[in-house]
Nucleic acid binder design. Structure first.
Lengths: 223, 223
DNA sequence: GTCTATAAGGCGATAGAC
DNA sequence: GTCTATCGCCTTATAGAC
């Protein structure tokens, strides 16, 4: 039996080799794969993309992806879950903040658009590729989306009952508002004629001031 | 040599066998294939659908589709071209009709929504699967779409310059209007809580009366 | 106009070396 | 953690019989 070497330092633990811990490196790798997959899925569509395409985008071979994800669908699930859950966590608090329904919705519209700006490809995937998810994953994502939309509809409903908003069917107004908000993914580009701040200001006016009829935001002085 | 039988009627040309001419039958078959493909493409996504899936939906074998279309992409092209071109042909005349910009846009919104109601699946395909078209086909469809949107933006611009509409960036207002209009494909179902006429009336008010600010349509008395 | 049979290649996923 | 090699299946499209 070899002599016991208790408390000996692990080999190679010198100052120059202290990189990120293995668990952190693994998380970073997963995030790289998810980001690359989101970009390619958004451009070509989930079914048209091969595991080899995703792997090439992160500089590894197709088989190596299976060390990080059990299947191609798990990568899609990670893309959709991340963007959808963070959308809820980041933006719904603005609907609970102090202020009138119009003020809360205006802050929400700004937050929604600014959140999605750096996550454009993930949002496109989350909007268009849900049919490719497994039934269980699909149900989970749909749950987040339904809750998000219902919370907005409830605030619209409150604003109409208080008289701050002009009368309309709250369901229809909520569908229309999300049509405007989500439509941005199909036309906005960073190098386009409009920058994000112009879009945010304009959409707060068009949605909260005009479509819902809040006088505070009708002319864009407060957005 | 057999005796000549000039002007003899073709065999089986009796009264009970006079069906459609062969050219008409062929056109009908093509339309059947396009309709079935649109439905399946909309549900599963173009790349996830096989030629065998389309063939099965019309009751033939996969190879038989190649008698009607040269490739799978040609079927997608037929779906996209038909719905996009007819959208232009059917609805743009409402923008040239007599009346104020608000009246013309209100008629256009109604026509757009009523046109798409029986073509929901084709519209979804035309919105989401353009990336799978060949570059030449893609350019043709994009041309129709750009023209359609520019015509609407021009009417919005005219209404703002005449003072009928409230001031706003016409590009942003047009994007917002199309966001509302096209968003309907992702939530409207025939057996849902709202019927089409309610949606049409509500959207004319929300888009023309509220978002654009035409007083004639603000309260829904004229829609 | 539809069929059967098949060519030629890409797919997701796995096994096992290093 | 990534690699090479490969399995079995599915894909679009073609050839030629009927």
């Amino acid at each position: 039996m070899a002599p016991e070497q208790v408390d000996a330092p692990p080999p190679g633990d010198g100052p120059e080799s202290t990189g990120p811990a293995p668990a952190a490196r693994r998380r970073v790798r997963r995030a790289e794969i998810v980001a690359a997959a989101a970009r390619i899925f958004a451009q070509q569509g989930y079914a048209a993309v091969g595991m080899r395409d995703i792997a090439e985008a992160v500089g590894i071979r197709g088989a190596s992806l299976y060390h990080h994800f059990a299947s191609k669908e798990e990568i899609l699930y990670a893309v959709c879950l991340t963007v959808t859950r963070e959308l809820n966590e980041q933006n719904l608090p603005f609907l609970d903040a102090p202020g009138t329904p119009g003020q809360r919705l205006a802050a929400f519209v700004r937050a929604h658009l600014e959140f999605l700006q750096p996550r454009r490809v993930e949002h496109i995937v989350g909007l268009h590729e849900l049919a490719a998810l497994s039934p269980a994953h699909r149900a989970e994502i749909d749950g987040y989306r339904r809750y998000y939309q219902r919370r907005v509809r409830d605030v619209i409903d409150a604003g109409m009952r208080s008289g701050e908003f002009a009368p309309a069917d709250p369901r229809l107004a909520a569908f229309a508002a999300f049509g405007v908000l989500n439509g941005i993914s199909s036309w906005f580009h960073e190098d386009g004629a409009l920058d994000l701040e112009e879009v945010v200001r304009g959409y707060v006016v068009l949605i909260v001031g005009r479509m819902l009829g809040s006088r505070e935001y009708f002319n864009g002085q407060n957005s």
